[in-house]
Design a protein around this nucleic acid. Sequence first.
DNA 1: CGTGTTTACCGCCATG
DNA 2: ATCATGGCGGTAAACA
Length: 313
Amino acid sequence: MKRSVGFVVYPGFQMLDLSGPAAALETGGRWDSSCDYEVSLLSPNGGMVKSSGGIQVETLKIAQAPALHTVIACGGVGALHCNEDAKIIRFLRDHHQAGTRMASVCTGAFLLAAAGLLKGCRATTHWRYAAQFQRTYPDVLLQSDSIWVQDQGIWTSAGVTAGIDLTLALIAQDNDEDTSRLIARELVVYHRRPGGQTQFSAMLDLVSPTGKFAGLLDWARLHLDQTLSVDELADHVAMSPRHFSRAFTEETGQTPAKAVEQLRLEVARELIEGKAGSVESVARQVGFRSADRMRRAFVRSFGVPPKSIRQTS
DNA sequence: CGTGTTTACCGCCATG
DNA sequence: ATCATGGCGGTAAACA
């Protein structure tokens, strides 16, 4: 069966948000006719649309979209300006109400949220825009540390290449895990990223090389059993707590306490998946004062307690 | 499950 | 004027 997938783009969209998922969809049909997708590109006014990198694509007007099985809203710097575009909003709203499967990549989540589709739903977006997103749409349960999230049939993914992970998951839903695994191998990407669903490792990679806080984060990772309060961190880089907090948030897109908690959660998760000791002892190793506190942090961040991670891994 | 306490965050403003 | 810095106080969240 051929499934029709429509990508929503606009001036300033991110090419990789489109081309990554499109490549994954294209690859599927190559062996297996039951995994065949037809891709259409849709923009508010149709015609040629320029991506943020300058490459242009030919699009249909969204009003002339064919019947669609899935809609994917692409992200990009343009998303922050056109999330009030009435044509896009109406298009997304109509298709959602009609039961079309809805998805977004990166800051495409801003479009879904603007259309009101994410109210009360768990969702994610590019980590750098997470704070802005939460401020703009406080009624969305943002899971800023997830690669992708599915809630109420709406799929959102983190920044850029996470769109490929998302598409693999969509393909797995339409077909099966094996098909999605084969496609991942063909594309030479991870079928399941190391580190599970967290994008924080990716964040460390992106921020560390250039950032002022590279050394600080590395140091913190090695001393997770210490308190690591904002005051201590600020002291460690010889800044006032106020200035440190502001500079850190600006630089990394995360507040200091959140970042430390992410580090703790990430290491804890690895230890738990690796079955290294009891949940209680893992909690202490990574600096949670108690297993109960760690458990709450897990639920807050991953949506599930440590126990269920150990069981499913 | 409520309740007092601590912590983090952020807006505002002063300083240099 | 602009920018980096940092102190203060309110608020919200997390903790005990």
